[in-house]
Every structure is written in C-alpha cells, then in structure tokens.
Design a binder for these strands. Structure first.
Lengths: 334, 334
DNA sequence: CTGAAAGCGCTTACAG
DNA sequence: CTGAAAGCGCTTACAG
C-alpha cells in the first residue's frame, strides 16, 4: 500500500481510503491510485486490515462438520456458503469424525484464526469449553444436535414427530408388526426417533414388541445383519422402519438378499441419493438439509450483527417422500 | 499477550517465546506464563502472528471446487483436509458452479486472506489471471482439469484410457453396437472420454456409428431423453457407455423406464453412491478421488515448502468396478 | 535466558 | 478532501 501511494504520489492513507471505497476522495487522485494499484498488482491484505479494525471482524466463519464428505455435512456447507458469500465472508471448515478431542482442537484452531462465528455439528457431549469465547463475542449456532452444558442457538429437524410420521404412514397402510432399526442409543437424535416410533404405536393402540426392536446399530453391515435376523423370525414383521441413512442401506441390502424387497414395506429416516432409482424406490422421512443450513447461517450472522436475544432452538420440519417401498401392504407378506 | 505478561510478571516477549514453544525459557517462568494465559483465557492470534512473521505464511490454503455439495468435490475436500490438518493448516473453500466470474472472485477473496496455496478445479478456460500471484509465491495445483494459459501442477484421472477400458470391457463381452452418451464437448474431460471411446472401437476394428453417439448432454434429463431415443431406434445399440455421473443416472432411468435394464449392458464413467444396490448393480469406471485429492495436497505443500521444479501433470489411474450391468451379453437383447 | 525497540500492513483518531 | 502519528497483536533483530 505504501508502494502504491509512492507511485501515485499520494499518502498511504489516501490509498487506504480508495481501496475501502470511502467517498471523500478526489476522483482524480482516486483514479491515479487505482491505476498504480493495478500496475503494481496490489492485493489488499484483509488480514492486516482486520487486525487494526475496531470491531475485530475477520470476515471469516468456522464450520465444524461431522465429515465434509458425507452428503448431510456437504449440503449444510453449501447452504452456509451461499449465505456467507453474499456478505463477502469466507468459510473455514473441518471434519470431526465424531471425535470430541478433534472438536476441541478444531475449535481452538478456528479461534486462533479469529473467526467471527462458528456453526457446529457437535461430536462430544460437553460444549462448555466454548463458553469463554462465546462470552467474548464469538457467535455460535449448533446444527443437527443441541449443545450440551452450554446455551446457544440450534437448528435441527423434528426427529421425534418425523419418525412418528413415518411409522404412522406404515400403520396407515395396514401394518401392525413394524420393526425398528436404530442407531446407537447414546445419540440424542437416535433416542428421539425411537421415541417417535413409540409415539406412533401408542397413538394407534399397538403394543411395542421388543423382539422386533433393534437399537445400537452403527454400520450398514450391523443393520443388515439385524434386519436379516428379524426377517427370519417365526413371526416376522411386515414392515421395517430404519431410523438413519446407513441403517436404511443395510435394511435394503437385507431385503434384497432375501428377495423380499417387494413383500416387506420399508420407510427410512433421511433421504438417500438415487433412492428413486432403487427397486422398489424407497419411501423416506426427508430432512430439509439446505433449509437447516440456510437458517443456521442467518441466525449466525444475526448474532454477529449484534443480536443478543435469548438463544433458541429452531425446528425445521421433515417431510414424507412416498416412492413405493413404504406403500407395500402387509397382505403381500408371507 | 501483554496482559498475560503483566499478570505473569514477565515481558511480552517472554510470553511470545512460551506460546511459540521456544526452548530457551526458564521452566519456572514458562509455567507462570502458562498459568496466567489459562487464567486470562488467552487465545493466540494467528493472524497477527502471521502478519509479522518473515515467511508471510498464513497456515491456510484455499480450495476452489465445482460445488462443495457434489460427491466428487466433497471427497477432494476431505482428502485435502486430512493432509492439511497434519500440518496445522486450515482450509478455506468455495464453490464455483462452473462460473468463470465466480472463479476469479473467489480467487481474489482467497488471496486477500493471504492463503499459502490454492487447489483448484477450474471453471473458466483461462487461468492467466493467476500468474502474478503464482510468481509472488502462491502455490497452485489444479485438479480434474488442466490449467489453461498458465503453467502449474495438475492431478487428474486417465480420462481417455479409462473410457477406453470401459468400452473395451463391453466389447469383450461381445458387444458390437455400443452407444456413447457424453457431456458438453466444450469440456476437456468430455472430449478425452469420447476419444477413449473411439480408441476402443478402433482397436477392436469396429466402425463408429454416429447415429448412436450422443454428446453435449448436460443434465440427467437430457441423457435420459437421449437414451430413450437410442433404445427405440430401428437398430438399437446392445450396450450403453455413459461418460459421466449424471449421464449414467439418466441412462439408468431410461433403461428402467423401458424395462430393459436386464437386456442392455451399461458401463458408466465415475462411480455412483449406492450403485451396488441398484438392479442390476452398475458397472463403472471409477476414479480414485481420495487418491487424487491426497496427491494434490501433497504437491501443493511441496511447492509451499519451496519446491520449484517444473510443473507436471500427474495421472491417477481409474479402475473398472464390475457389478453386473456391464456384463450383460448382447444375446439378451431384442 | 530475558527484554526494549522497531515494524508487519493496515486503520483509527486527529489535525490541517 | 488529505496526511502525519499512533497502534492492532504479534515477531524480528538486537542488546544485555
């Protein structure tokens, strides 16, 4: 910037004014400065600028995801990026892989880079380590899972009522024996979805049969094995409700392996890529992932802009996508 | 840092030494400093540190992707993140959506943030705008597509020989009439894959029939329409080679819509999520996306570390994943 | 082993 | 409308 000033024959300060688009500059001088800047290939140093600026804003936010490569995280990223871009804000992201240690490391590394805010899909069960930075003005928004031991905004889907909707759909199609396949019961969303399954049964006056409930499945292989086991029982279920992505994949594999994909109904929680190309196409309870990411980003920027209202939990509704697998009647079974 | 020094009763400089882990500090003082830092919730300011540091490194790299939300980009991101994390380097990413304007904007925004290097899946057909920053020491590595009007490292798959491998596979299974469904011919990789298709035909002594070649398809809908049209011709092909992800999806939809998925062979370029769950499972020429991303990251850091050898093009081999659709014989047709 | 001074590239807060 | 001085939080280059 000094060099630009020297070449243009003005002070460094005037160059600063031109670069920052301040209107109080003689147009002739401004043009000179711009020409000099272009000639010297001047690149504004945002990092130095932010250091001196009063508000201490870095025009950068952090995004802590489960895994950038999984579709849910990637969609959240994209939605956040779209909002951030409109404000000229950069996004620094990282994957946690469900590791609480990694969560704290990444947070520290993002704070060292002075992010203005953080959007987090938490891995650990204690976010109190963020309190200090939160009090020092770093905005925080949680996605998919609520913060633990910390008060902050969060955005998530209606896990419980969404699951209930999926199970009720099966009941509405005449099913009375509906198996539940769920993720680790230590995970809050898995608990909620299981509660939704119970809600739907209760509402329909059906008793829960623990023999066809399988929780704590954490891989598609585990889900597949559990589903095969269920399907080979003396009194097999006529329908399956799989409460998560990978579990749905396992359930489909099990059904196909036994050639029962057209006999047993299946509703999954979370949509799958190409779900409509499968045979039968898979009916799912789908989250509005882009909607969740967009809302989270807007909330974050509102906080960054100074909003200091009470933190709130925002629920984005799920929707039932009927494609075929969830509309198979129990009669076909046997 | 000044406050920490005051509390610990040492100079600011000593605090700096402790924070940076310099060994020449009295252990007693160091402990005092650390205690004071913890008490004041001191957060090191990487951004200020980098400003003063001689090498001007920001410990941050930029990643310009097609779209963070598409699986190819997301996998590249993950691979790059893994390498960057090991060096304590942050990753600032953005999506280009095939827009050359957006490419230049994002690059400018990343340079303003003083990234040490850039990994790019370019959108435009002219990257000469990067030359100045490249000469000023910013490392550059291109992924998936070669840079245009600029000399820089690049990493990509063997589009041409990979496509030839896929088509040869179909020929090996007895096919003589193999349709080609390809992306916009303005895209370099699409050209290469088409050339590979021609190579395979030529090698087998087969003449190319332009009536069953459809290029310039850019959506799955366009691919589906083209495939349906091909399948309803008087002399339909017995096999389809789809040269890209979305095009493969379109081809599958077309085959399923006509109930011919078990009669016509299909080999696609690029793998699909759940491809093994489809009926029949889809045979593809798969890229080693993680391998490409990892290599790109290593090359970038080698440049950042001072490597100034001639830029080179690195080819990561594709592999054929046989799952069923590509092994259907032509006899089944009719 | 420790510290006072200068400066990274920029903006703030003043003068003119 | 323009500029000289001070300072953001830190590290470099020197002294001691």
């Amino acid at each position: 910037m000094r060099d630009v000033g020297a070449l243009a024959g003005v002070s460094l300060k005037t160059v600063s004014r031109v670069i920052n688009g301040e209107p109080t500059v003689d147009p002739v001088l401004a043009a000179k400065v711009r020409r000099a800047a272009a000639q010297l290939n001047y690149r504004h140093n945002l990092t130095a600028s932010n250091l001196r600026r009063g508000d201490g804003r870095s025009m950068t936010i952090g995004l802590m995801l489960e895994d950038v490569a999984n579709p849910y995280s990637a969609s959240i990223y994209r939605a956040v990026e779209n909002v951030a871009r409109m404000r000229g804000v950069g996004v620094l992201a990282g994957s946690l892989d469900e590791s609480p240690e990694r969560e704290q490391e990444l947070a520290a590394s993002l704070f060292a880079r002075r992010v203005d805010g953080l959007i987090i899909i938490p891995a650990g069960r204690d976010q109190s380590y963020l309190r200090t930075d939160q009090q020092h003005g770093t905005a925080l928004v949680f996605v998919d899972r609520a913060p633990a031991l910390l008060s902050a905004d969060s955005v998530m889907c209606d896990n419980r009522s969404g699951a209930a909707m999926g199970v009720s759909h099966l009941i509405g199609h005449g099913h009375r024996r509906i198996a539940f396949l769920g993720d680790l019961s230590s995970i809050a969303t898995a608990q909620e979805r299981y509660a939704g399954y119970q809600d739907a049964l209760r509402e329909a006056g059906l008793a829960e049969d623990p023999r066809i409930v399988r929780r704590d499945l954490h891989t598609d292989a585990a889900a597949q094995a559990a589903a095969v086991e269920l399907l080979t029982r003396p009194e097999p279920p006529t329908a399956l409700f799989s409460a998560q992505n990978l579990i749905t994949v396992g359930a489909i594999r099990a059904l196909c392996a036994r050639g029962e994909q057209h006999q047993k109904a299946l509703v999954g929680f979370d949509d799958l890529t190409l779900a409509d190309l499968l045979d039968p196409p898979v009916t799912v309870v789908a989250q509005d992932v882009a909607g969740i990411g967009t809302l989270a980003a807007h909330l974050l920027f509102r906080r960054i802009d100074g909003d200091d209202s009470e933190p709130a939990t925002h629920i984005v509704r799920t929707s039932l996508v009927q494609r075929g697998s969830g509309e198979i009647p129990p009669l076909a079974s046997g």
